[in-house]
């Protein structure tokens, strides 16, 4: 039966994430949240604001400043039957936990031939555009996509943030949950009664006929702006929000490209061996004879993330996306 009355609320992505954690903590006593500065402070981005006050220090835990310890103890808690949601304070700080994530979190289910389940969510604010200092603007998704055993997802809006985090917490597999920090304070209507889509389903967020712009996380908003600019030039650009990076919803990508016959993939992460490379490879395998132009990629450079005064040069912006669109039509 369909919901008779849907409840919508306008909120920021931070508010939506906070609501998702609050509701998950409320519904399941096995959910625990831990990370640096997430308790009394409510997290450096305030995603966990008020949760420790409401649920207590045993369930919303201020961790020592040690990322491997945060993930490693979360694995131990999961072995005991808990469902930990951990916060890594910034993208560039996940690497001390990389060993735990890659050698343990990702592999223990297989190592145990299915007897152990690790329902751990690793929340990571990621991406640039906030004028931050080094290590606070990176996009490390490709490392995690490359590791079997992990699920990787990234919401682009507050509505998706609420539901995708709820779905990630409900998942019996470990999920790397990448939150686009530059979109943290963007507001949108959140439907608090109905799941918009499964966690690993890509969605067309703006239909078009001539070219598919595929993006996720922070770059979806950019692609929507590009589609608007394209419309002014008489081009109908479809925007695909991938939402999930592992697994990849290649069926939806393929369905879109077969209609539009052109594709540009946009992400903040370096283009070299990035998510866009995987998507482009799969599109040419599946849609070669439908393509009018090579699949192009717009993203960061194969260089360390630059000082913030240069980040607008490094990050894909509207001009670079439109330039790639032009190239796709010139082929």
């Amino acid at each position: 039966m369909r919901e008779s009355r849907q409840v919508f609320e306008k909120m920021t992505m931070v508010g939506a994430l906070n609501g998702a954690l609050r509701d998950a903590l409320d519904e399941d006593p096995k959910v625990v949240v831990q990370g640096e500065d997430i308790g009394r402070l409510g997290g450096v981005f305030r995603v966990t604001d008020g949760l420790q006050h409401r649920f207590g220090k045993d369930r919303v835990v201020d961790s020592p400043l040690a990322e491997s310890g945060i993930v490693g103890t979360a694995i131990g808690l999961a072995l005991r039957g808990f469902r930990p949601v951990v916060e890594i304070q910034f993208d560039g700080f996940v690497f001390p936990a990389f060993n735990q994530i890659v050698t343990q979190l990702a592999k223990m289910h297989a190592r145990s031939l299915g007897k152990v389940r690790l329902p751990v969510v690793v929340r990571i604010p990621y991406g640039g555009g906030i004028g931050a200092i080094e290590h606070h603007s990176e996009s490390p998704e490709a490392y995690f996509m490359h590791t079997a055993g992990l699920r990787v997802a990234s919401p682009a809006t507050a509505d998706d943030a609420y539901w995708m985090l709820r779905q990630a917490i409900a998942s019996d597999d470990p999920v790397i949950f990448l939150e686009p920090k530059r979109r943290y304070w963007d507001k949108c209507e959140v439907n608090l009664t109905t799941e918009p889509a499964p966690l690993h389903k890509a969605r067309v967020v703006r239909p078009g006929r001539d070219l598919t712009l595929a993006a996720y996380g922070p770059s979806v908003k950019l692609c929507l702006a590009a589609a608007e600019a394209g419309a002014a030039e008489g081009r109908s650009l479809e925007v695909l929000d991938l939402r999930s990076l592992s697994p990849l919803d290649t069926d939806t990508v393929e369905w879109s490209v077969r209609r539009t016959r052109r594709m540009v993939v946009v992400h903040e992460a370096p283009v070299f061996v990035g998510a866009g490379a995987e998507i482009a490879a799969r599109v040419q395998e599946r849609c070669f004879y439908h393509l009018e132009a090579p699949v192009l990629r717009v993203g960061g450079f194969h260089a360390p993330y630059p000082p913030s005064r240069l980040e607008e040069e490094y990050l894909p912006g509207l001009d670079r996306v439109m330039h790639a669109v032009d190239q796709a039509f010139a082929s």
Partner: peptide, 19 residues
């Protein structure tokens, strides 16, 4: 389970004990 990468299981043990 036996864990080949030394170090990580001590943190699993602590997390388990916290639980």
């Amino acid at each position: 389970l036996y864990t080949i990468v030394i170090g990580p299981p001590l943190l699993h043990a602590v997390g388990y004990a916290m639980g």
